[in-house]
């Protein structure tokens, strides 16, 4: 192990980690948005749109992110949609993550007993108020474990971005192995940087899960 080499190429990994994080965070934010909207559509059983959402969820959950990215990055330009690699990454992550988030939120929404909605309605709340003050807060709490698992899953999935020529951690590691044949050092830094990104999220996840179990929310 050459520490000199590690010190020299540390900034390269830092830049790559920042890129991974940046696309990861933006992509996950969009995935949450897509997931929330899809879950609400499914919850309220909006006709027609519900069908489309269900089809989207099946399509997105049953295909690998790598294939989705290839399709978006190499396929779409042929029908006139040309996207920047970073935007492709965000779109891919939002497309994949949206369905996973939708499932997490949907099961949270469905876990709330019907009687709560009925009681709130009988108190004279509007449908929006029922969602805003009664169902949503409880549903979010219930879906936190699934939500955190999805966040970790999506952050891990960002590792395939190197295939659409984004200079992320994988790309950097492969580059350095190819250029200098410093396999041990490159892989060591790769693992370290992924740990720096993923460990805190994973710890936060288990912390939240433990906290929420105590809350109980009337169950």
């Amino acid at each position: 192990m050459s520490w000199e080499f590690i010190g020299k190429y540390m900034p390269m990994y830092q830049r790559a980690a920042v890129l991974t994080l940046k696309i990861g965070i933006i992509g996950i934010a969009f995935a949450i948005l897509v997931g929330l909207m899809s879950a609400l559509v499914l919850y309220y059983k909006v006709p027609v749109i519900k069908r489309i959402i269900k089809m989207y969820i099946e399509l997105s959950r049953n295909t690998p992110l790598l294939v989705q990215l290839f399709f978006i990055y190499y396929g779409f330009p042929k029908i006139g949609i040309r996207l920047d690699a970073e935007i492709c990454g965000v779109v891919g992550l939002a497309f994949l993550g949206g369905s996973y988030m939708a499932e997490a939120f949907r099961s949270g929404l469905e876990s709330i007993d019907k009687i709560q909605e009925e009681s709130a309605l009988s108190l004279g709340m509007t449908r929006f108020q029922v969602m805003r003050y009664i169902i949503f807060p409880q549903a979010i709490a219930t879906s936190v474990p699934a939500f955190m698992a999805n966040v970790i899953f999506l952050l891990k999935e960002t590792s395939v971005f190197s295939s659409i020529s984004l200079m992320d951690l994988m790309f950097t590691a492969k580059d350095l192995i190819g250029l200098y044949y410093k396999t041990t050092e490159s892989l060591f830094m790769l693992v370290m940087f992924y740990l720096i990104i993923l460990l805190p999220v994973s710890l936060l996840g288990s912390l939240l899960e433990r906290r929420l179990r105590y809350a109980g929310f009337g169950n």
């Binding site: 891990k156 960002t158 492969k174 041990t184 892989l187 992924y194 993923l198």
Partner: peptide, 19 residues
Amino acid sequence: RIMPQLVLLFLVYFGTTRA
């Protein structure tokens, strides 16, 4: 669990050759 599968693939594919 914490490592992306691609990292594991790299570790085994490139790592074992070297180590």
